[in-house]
Structures are given as structure tokens and as C-alpha cells.
Amino acid sequence: MIDDATPIETLFERAQDYSKSTIKLFKLNAIDKSADIVSSLLARLAVIMTVVLSVVIINIGISIWIGKMLGETFYGFLIIGGFYAFMALMLHLYRYQWIKHPISNSIVKKMMKEKML
């Protein structure tokens, strides 16, 4: 069997195959990284939702307890509400240092992480 392809044609075909393989590999890596990030965020979201529900229930109990100690139930809710208003103010003032930068760094680390095979 005689191959009539010139070296340039063979080189061109190999370059074309290489570029197709490279693009496919890039797409697969992008899908893998996206799936890793989304699954990680969803797992964290599930934990956060559970913690939030627990904190809400505990805060209702603490509010009622403080209210009973002060004589009126609504006092306890006002005190707990004031505490959370203060926490919201602190989170607003320090949102970049406490929330934005750590989350951004975490996402970038996940995206840059190499898979160990």
C-alpha cells in the first residue's frame, strides 16, 4: 500500500487533529472545573441552610428566655433583633475582608487546582 500524501499534507492533518483534541480537552477540563465548583458550592449551601435553621430556632428560644427574665417576652426579641442589627452593620462594613475576598480566593484556588491522577 503506497501512501500518496505529501509530508506537508500529513503535517497539516496531524496539526488539525491536534487542535481538535486540544479544544476537546479544554472543554472537558472546563466542564470538570465547573462541576467541581458547583458541587462544592451546593454542599456548602446545604450545610449553611441547616446551620441557619438551627440558629433561628435557638434564637427564638433565647428570645423567649430573655423575655421571661425581663418580664415581657417582646424584650427578648428586641434584644436579639438589636444584636443581629449590629452584626448586619459589622458585616456591611467589613464585607470585602470577611466575605468577598475569601470566597473569591476559594473559587480561584478551586479553578487553579490540578487534578492528581
Rank of each mutant, 00 (worst) to 15 (best):
N59D: 02
V52C: 00
V47D: 10
I66A: 01
A46R: 08
S54I: 12
M49H: 12
F74E: 05
G71A: 06
G67Y: 06
A46S: 15
A43L: 15
S63L: 08
A46P: 06
W65K: 09
T73P: 01
E72K: 10
L45C: 10
R44M: 13
V52T: 00
V51Q: 08
L45G: 01
G61V: 08
T50H: 05
F74S: 06
S54N: 06
I60E: 02
S54R: 01
V56K: 08
G71P: 11
A43S: 13
G67D: 07
I66D: 09
I57W: 11
V55A: 08
I48V: 09
V56W: 12
K68S: 05
I62W: 02
G67N: 00
I58W: 13
L70W: 03
I64W: 14
S54H: 04
L45I: 09
L45K: 02
I57T: 10
V52K: 05
S54C: 03
M49N: 12
I48S: 15
M69S: 11
I48L: 10
A43Y: 12
I60K: 03
V47A: 05
L70E: 07
L53P: 02
F74H: 12
L45M: 13
F74G: 00
V56H: 02
I62C: 02
N59F: 14
N59L: 06
L45D: 00
G61L: 13
T73Q: 05
L53H: 03
V47H: 08
M49W: 12
S54Q: 02
W65G: 07
M69G: 09
N59T: 01
I66L: 13
E72C: 07
L53D: 10
G67R: 12
K68V: 06
A43N: 15
S54L: 15
A46H: 04
V56I: 11
I58A: 14
G61F: 14
W65D: 14
G67K: 09
R44V: 10
W65M: 15
I48D: 03
R44F: 13
W65L: 14
S54V: 06
